[in-house]
Design a protein around this nucleic acid. Structure first.
Lengths: 133, 133
DNA sequence: TTATACCTGACTAAAATAGTAAGAATAGGG
DNA sequence: CCCTATTCTTACTATTTTAGTCAGGTATAA
């Protein structure tokens, strides 16, 4: 049930961008600041852009910025984008195992709890975090 | 953030045992009922036993039964056993990345939500589930 | 003593993860 | 117009995790 490194990098990047909301920051800069592998981050940023969470600027002095204000982007949206979904389930809701779905009920409840938690956390809420608080 | 097949099998097995709480059921029987791979299930049951969730009976007519009543075993305990932990974090709380831990705060909140949810669900609550309810 | 079941550890194939690498497209500055 | 900084895209690779299988040992009821 762990979150992937990929997702963690993505979240860190989003928070970093929220911190300097008005600036365009390049992947190189971001990768250095947060010590994340540059080319890997490149892929991740690309996905976040395709999902409509980021705007990109190409060419020299280019980079990325948040598409919306940090007060409007939830962590739930970020993680769901990177992780594909917030559901811990392995089968879709079409799951039709004989009886197999008492577990389904459990997984659905987990999903609900995660969703509710993460949809209540906005990027702006995390900008201040500099350590274990 | 998905739950492993292993964990799902384990949960299914625990629920099945809760359903026939007073009986000793063999792995073979369990595997057939729930159509799970027998030898794989064997490993899983072994871990659940080592964790103190199951009692085993060896020899002919042997098998497994819950160690405690279905009203006393939470799904949280089952999943934490099988999954190692309920935390989605990849690093321990010793994590000391430069700044890396605004994500930590997020992951801790997820864990809290999951834990609270799953520690409130007992096996007995799931025994009735036969389909998508 | 034999069959049945648990127990243990080693092994394997397939999938997911965490990257790398290489090049094309775009845009700003000289 | 050309050079360079940057994003964009796709393909590749190594490592780890997952989902099992398999072979053999151990306890016990009949």
């Amino acid at each position: 049930m762990r979150v992937s490194q990929r997702t963690e990098y993505g979240v860190r990047a989003m928070i970093a961008l929220a911190r300097d909301f008005d600036e365009v920051i390049s992947i190189k800069e971001l990768a250095e600041r947060e010590s994340m592998p540059e080319t890997f981050l490149e892929q991740i940023m690309s996905d976040l852009r395709k999902a409509g969470l980021l705007k990109s600027v190409r060419g020299p002095n280019g980079g990325f910025r948040l598409k919306d204000a940090p007060s409007e982007i939830t962590i739930g949206r970020v993680i769901a984008t990177l992780e594909g979904s917030l559901s811990p389930a392995r089968c879709g809701s079409d799951c039709s195992k004989q009886d197999g779905c008492s577990t389904r009920s459990v997984l659905d409840r987990i999903e609900r709890a995660i969703t509710e938690t993460l949809d209540g956390i906005y990027l702006k809420d995390l900008v201040g975090d500099l350590a274990h608080e």
